[in-house]
Each structure stands twice: as structure tokens, then as C-alpha cells.
Design a protein around this nucleic acid. Structure first.
Length: 297
DNA sequence: TGACAGGGGGTGT
DNA sequence: ACACCCCCTGTC
């Protein structure tokens, strides 16, 4: 029986069903590859927080295993399966990707078996990607950690949940700035006012068809097309969303010869070439570049 | 070991 | 095209 640093009892490791062929490299990409910002390594083990859940993951004998505090484990298990989207439908989407005619995509799929898109809470995903402008993953994680510690409520195991948008609406822009947000503090502050003023805004937006949801997200201060697509992809399971940032521009130039294409053109290419799960394809492309691209210039 | 410059997964004007 | 902020990283 594992005891955490905080002295709480944790359950023994259990296998996560529906996640076969997981490697350490895939797990690192899944949890720390730019989808989520609240997973950190503690030795061999990954610890993550979303909503009020605290869970640890590890690859043991080539199987993905999880554990949680004894007190909450029963509640945490279905939440974890939802978060990891273990229903198997993403496997079918992967198979429908054009890997048969696209050798580069084929080698990406081979290199990171079982890489998937997470199903994160919508509001938390919005917060994460409002922090992401011109920031790299380590820095975003730092901002998010400070927001949680200073403005979120404790949830046990020494962790805090992220502040809700309602809670954020009552945090001053100055206090946000002190969480290393820089110019993003104003975006988050103003977005929080908009969301707090309109009850149910987030929930309704999440349920809308892709194009309408994206349009509504883009009406928020600090949210453009890229951030909106990230929120819909990583926070609402819209696998067709294809966020175009400087990395994907470089990748598409390097691997697909799209020299000097503009973001809107690359977005259209992505939708046409990769199809209904373009966002899933993109995650594989990124994983590949991180391992093999080093300096992409 | 410490200082310093350069640049960063975007948005709004 | 450029400002917005300021931390991280690499380098000397």
C-alpha cells in the first residue's frame, strides 16, 4: 500500500483498461506534450490534477497503471476513464487517418502507439490556453501551478484545484499578474467578467456544433482561432479542430513541403488532408518533431 | 557560478 | 507590422 508524502493512504496500482501498447514515450507525450499543464513527474510516476481529481499514472510491465488516494479512488476511476477517453473510439479515428498514403504520418503513428487526445474539463482548458500565448510548456505549467496554489481550493493530497471562472472573476488583475501571467492577466481577468456575467455560457458553448462553438470562443478577449481550436480539441473532444501555430507551420513546411503557406491555408490543408480527426493527427506530428526535429528553425 | 541577451506553441490594433 | 509582459534557456 503506497503512502504519499502527505501521509494519506493510496490504493495499489491498478491497470487502466482500454489503453494497450502504451510506452513511456507515449505517456510523456500524452501528459506533457502541450495538451495539459498539470502533470508532473515524480521519479517514475506522473501525478496529475484536473477538476478535483488527483491521480498518479505509471507504466508497469508495459501496462498503463493508475492509483489515487484511498478516500477518493472509487470516484476517481470513472473520471480517469473519461479523462483518458478509453472508450476506444479514438482508435477508430486513428485508423481512418490517411496513414496508408502518407508515409510520414505512418511513421508518427508507429513511433507513439496509443497517443490520444485527452478529454479535459472545458473551463480549465480555456484557462490553460489563455496562458499559452508566446509561452512554452514549462512556463505555462508554472503559471497554472501558481493560479491553482493561490486562487484554487485545496482538494487533498497536497494539491489545489484550479479556480473556476466564477472564482477568477473575483480575482484582481494585479493578483493575476503576480502569477507570472504578464499581458495575459488582462485577457483572463476580462474573459472571467464576460463568463461570470452570463450564467451557463461555458456549458452552452461546449455543447454547440464546432463552428458555432469556435465563433463564440473567439469573441472572448485573448481568444483567437488557435486558442479556440485548442480548447475545442483538448477540452471538448472535437477531434476535427486543427490548431495552427508556429510549430505546425514549421512542421508542415518541413514534412509536407508547404513553404511560405499562411495559417489559413495550412488550416485548410489540414482539414482536407487529415480529415475528421485532423487534431489527432497533429498531436502525432508534434510528438515526432519533439523527438526527431530538435531545432526546427 | 553568475550575468546577460534573445526569444517565446498568440492576440489585438 | 508591432506592442504586449517577463520568465526561461543557452551561452559566455
Amino acid at each position: 500500500m503506497g503512502a504519499s508524502r502527505e501521509g494519506e493512504k493510496w490504493i495499489d496500482w491498478r491497470e487502466v483498461r482500454g489503453f494497450s501498447r502504451v510506452t513511456e514515450a507515449t505517456l510523456a507525450e500524452l501528459l506533457d506534450g502541450g495538451q495539459a499543464f498539470r502533470w508532473r513527474r515524480q521519479g517514475e510516476v506522473w501525478r496529475g490534477v484536473w477538476s478535483a481529481y488527483v491521480v498518479e499514472l505509471n507504466v508497469i510491465d508495459q501496462r498503463l497503471c493508475w492509483r489515487a488516494p484511498e478516500k477518493t479512488a472509487q470516484r476517481d476511476e470513472p473520471a480517469l476513464h473519461h479523462y483518458l477517453d478509453t472508450t476506444g473510439h479514438q482508435e477508430r479515428f486513428v485508423d481512418e487517418l490517411p496513414w496508408r498514403s502518407d508515409p510520414h504520418l505512418d511513421q508518427c503513428l508507429e513511433a507513439f502507439p496509443a497517443l490520444r487526445i485527452l478529454r479535459q474539463p472545458f473551463g480549465e482548458t480555456l484557462l490553460g490556453f489563455l496562458c499559452s500565448a508566446t509561452k512554452q510548456i514549462v512556463q505555462i505549467k508554472q503559471m497554472i501551478a501558481l493560479l491553482a496554489e493561490r486562487h484554487g481550493t485545496p482538494i487533498g493530497a497536497g494539491e489545489h484545484r484550479l479556480p473556476t471562472w466564477d472564482e477568477l472573476s473575483r480575482v484582481s488583475e494585479k493578483a493575476l499578474r503576480e502569477c507570472l501571467l504578464g499581458f495575459r492577466a488582462r485577457y483572463i481577468h476580462d474573459t472571467a467578467q464576460v463568463i461570470a456575467e452570463q450564467k451557463g455560457w461555458l456549458e452552452e458553448t461546449e455543447r454547440l456544433p464546432y463552428a458555432e462553438a469556435k465563433e463564440r470562443l473567439c469573441s472572448l478577449p485573448g481568444v483567437g482561432e488557435k486558442v479556440a481550436d485548442c480548447v475545442l480539441l483538448f477540452g471538448a473532444g472535437r477531434l476535427e479542430a486543427f490548431p495552427v501555430d508556429t510549430w505546425i507551420l514549421k512542421t508542415m513546411e518541413r514534412r509536407y513541403g508547404l513553404t511560405a503557406w499562411k495559417p489559413a491555408q495550412v488550416a485548410r490543408f489540414g482539414r482536407v488532408h487529415f480529415g475528421a480527426a485532423a487534431g489527432l493527427a497533429q498531436q502525432y506530428l508534434f510528438a515526432w518533431e519533439r523527438r526527431n526535429g530538435a531545432r526546427m528553425k
